[in-house]
């Protein structure tokens, strides 16, 4: 899969007279569909439901962009990617954007030449073990067998953590999250490590979630967010400001419930600019006036999306924590709409 993508890209690069020009927006409009890369399945973040419709926190970003650009939140082709295939898929143009709990790092931004358009979840790497092993701290994991997904930042943090604490481990590299969970549940590894949010999400799907504990240590910073290719700034702006629109909507109290009412005009100029009743921010993006209104209309604002998919009322039960609005002591902060 990975290699075929690579050779496809290579052949494409070799045969095309010049690199496909940068106008992703035109491509998406002409296609009438947004190709959005997601995971192969992490509950709450991106997973097809019983009817085969993709649902989740990352999926919501794809749908919001599709609504803003194509006026249709269902005009999305979800492309499942693994830790290994995601970057080739994006670089080769197979997908227009990647919304797959991907960590924003220096080398991915600078060396791999991607453009992170913001952070939709501030995360960190954690460890999960079966409760009956009686481990209470990650520092007690000397000699443990650890399941990891290859091609992730997880793999590198893990090596650093064990090395700096002078303890040993046996890595078991695995391609997809589902296989990792399978091996972990069969006892082929003692520990499963990945982003803490994904641990909580996977655990929610276990037969008996309470039989597994997540260690208190968070060993890394994992700012997760959507990304696009370097070099198409117009397209990057659209994805960035769609995410910002969802965040700003929460900050300003625009919800799926009051959206149509507020869309008629309010006495808060920033809400008016956001929803297109004042000024024309949409035109600057190459979109129409109501782009942000449609994006928010899909599933509500950032907070609503969070609560519905991964919040405390769901089986995944993540608290807002770092992901609360800056006004509530969190890190979620959008630049102003003006």
């Amino acid at each position: 899969m990975n290699k075929s993508v690579f050779f496809g890209a290579l052949a494409g690069a070799a045969l095309a007279g010049g690199v496909a020009s940068a106008a992703t927006l035109d491509d998406v409009k002409a296609r009438g569909k947004l190709n959005c890369g997601v995971t192969t399945g992490v509950p709450g973040f991106a997973e097809p439901d019983a009817n085969g419709v993709w649902q989740g926190f990352d999926v919501a970003v794809c749908r919001a962009v599709a609504a803003a650009v194509l006026s249709d939140p269902t005009a999305v082709e979800f492309v499942p990617t693994t830790g290994k295939t995601r970057f080739t898929a994006l670089a080769s143009g197979e997908i227009d954007m990647l919304a797959r709990n991907t960590t924003w790092t220096f080398s991915r931004d600078v060396d791999l030449k991607f453009e992170f358009t913001g952070v939709n979840y501030y995360d960190g790497q954690g460890f999960m073990t079966p409760a009956d092993l009686g481990v209470t701290s990650a520092k007690d994991l000397d000699g443990a067998t650890v399941c990891i997904q290859t091609g992730t930042t997880t793999e590198l943090n893990l090596a650093d953590f064990f090395r700096s604490n002078n303890i040993s481990y046996e890595p078991v590299p695995i391609e997809t999250g589902a296989e990792a969970v399978q091996q972990y549940n069969a006892g082929a590894c003692d520990v499963y490590t990945t982003d803490a949010s994904a641990l909580a999400a996977q655990r929610a799907n276990f037969e008996d979630p309470s039989a597994h504990v997540i260690m208190p240590e968070i060993i890394s910073k994992e700012p997760l967010g959507p990304l696009v290719r370097h070099g198409d700034n117009e397209w990057a702006d659209i994805v960035r400001w769609t995410l910002n629109a969802l965040i700003t909507a929460e900050e300003l109290g625009v919800t799926s419930v009051n959206l149509s009412e507020m869309g008629g005009g309010t006495n808060n100029p920033e809400i008016n600019r956001l929803l297109g009743t004042e000024g024309d921010l949409g035109a600057m993006l190459g979109l129409d006036k109501e782009w942000a209104k449609r994006a928010i209309g899909v599933a509500g604002n950032y907070g609503e999306i969070f609560e519905k998919n991964i919040g405390e009322s769901t089986p995944i039960g993540l608290a807002r924590g770092l992901n609360a609005q800056w006004t509530d002591g969190g890190l979620i902060y959008s630049p102003p709409f003006r």
Partner: peptide, 15 residues
């Protein structure tokens, strides 16, 4: 798995 997997992904040096 090493050169064509993890190394490729961490460095992005596909070719």
């Amino acid at each position: 798995g090493t050169l064509g997997g993890i190394t490729l992904l961490q460095t992005g040096r596909a070719i």
